[in-house]
């Protein structure tokens, strides 16, 4: 009787402490921001230019995004800008992905940005499984001109929003055509109604 109560009690406590299933989270949690290549030297003499050799496509707006490994297959993307406070706008529809139109279009040189919700108040959003994306996975973005930009995932990281590495995500750090997929992650603060972290997948054009 004692043992049964003890075992059942322990089991209930352990189960009670297990989190119920939430959005998958990436294993990597990084918070260092990549510094720009800008030198701290102020010699006043510009360094000679470095020629680049990246593959990149013309500017054409994205019309569909497919990430087979995590079951994302969206046939439209909304357009996004910046909010008044300078942060990224987000889609009003939890089921739609959006792209940042002041940045490069997916396929162009530089970091193109596509954003989607991890969940709504009621259930999963379009990027619910983004945290399960793994390096080597393919992201296909079809463009209005009929071409498809194919990207390969390099890294999926999770950053605290209050220490967000702006330069790593939005800056010119890699000198090639790249893509950032952004959603929320980490703990959810029920008082503020916001997740504490962002999950960011980094990919490059194949």
């Amino acid at each position: 009787m004692t043992v049964a109560l003890g075992v059942a009690g322990t089991a209930a406590v352990i189960v009670g402490l297990q989190p119920s299933a939430g959005p998958p989270q990436p294993p990597v949690s990084a918070s260092a921001s990549t510094p720009s290549p800008t030198s701290a030297l102020t010699s006043g003499r510009a360094r000679d230019a470095v020629g680049l050799s990246a593959k990149f496509l013309s500017r054409s707006r994205p019309v569909a995004i497919a990430i087979a490994s995590i079951g994302v297959d969206a046939k439209t993307l909304v357009t996004l800008g910046k909010q008044a406070d300078g942060s990224l706008q987000v889609p009003t529809d939890f089921g739609k992905a959006g792209w940042y139109t002041d940045g490069p279009a997916p396929g162009q040189f530089g970091p193109a940005v596509i954003v989607g919700h991890v969940d709504s108040a009621n259930g999963p959003g379009i990027f619910y499984k983004l945290g399960a994306l793994r390096p080597g996975a393919t992201v296909n973005v079809r463009r209005a001109d009929g071409s498809t930009a194919r990207f390969s995932v390099d890294m999926v990281a999770r950053y605290p929003k209050d220490r967000f590495p702006t330069n790593t995500v939005y800056g010119d750090t890699t000198q090639r055509a790249e893509l950032r997929l952004i959603t929320c992650g980490g703990g959810f603060d029920r008082k503020t109604g916001h997740y504490l972290d962002n999950v960011v997948a980094f990919a490059h054009l194949l």
């Binding site: 959005p23 300078g86 942060s87 990224l88 987000v90 939890f94 954003v115 989607g116 919700h117 991890v118 969940d119 709504s120 108040a121 009621n122 259930g123 999963p124 959003g125 990027f127 950053y159 929003k161 967000f164 702006t166 952004i182 959603t183 929320c184 992650g185 959810f188 029920r190 109604g193 916001h194 997740y195 972290d197 962002n198």
Partner: peptide, 9 residues
Amino acid sequence: GGAATGAGG
């Protein structure tokens, strides 16, 4: 900064 992309459902 980051993006507010979740409502906690």
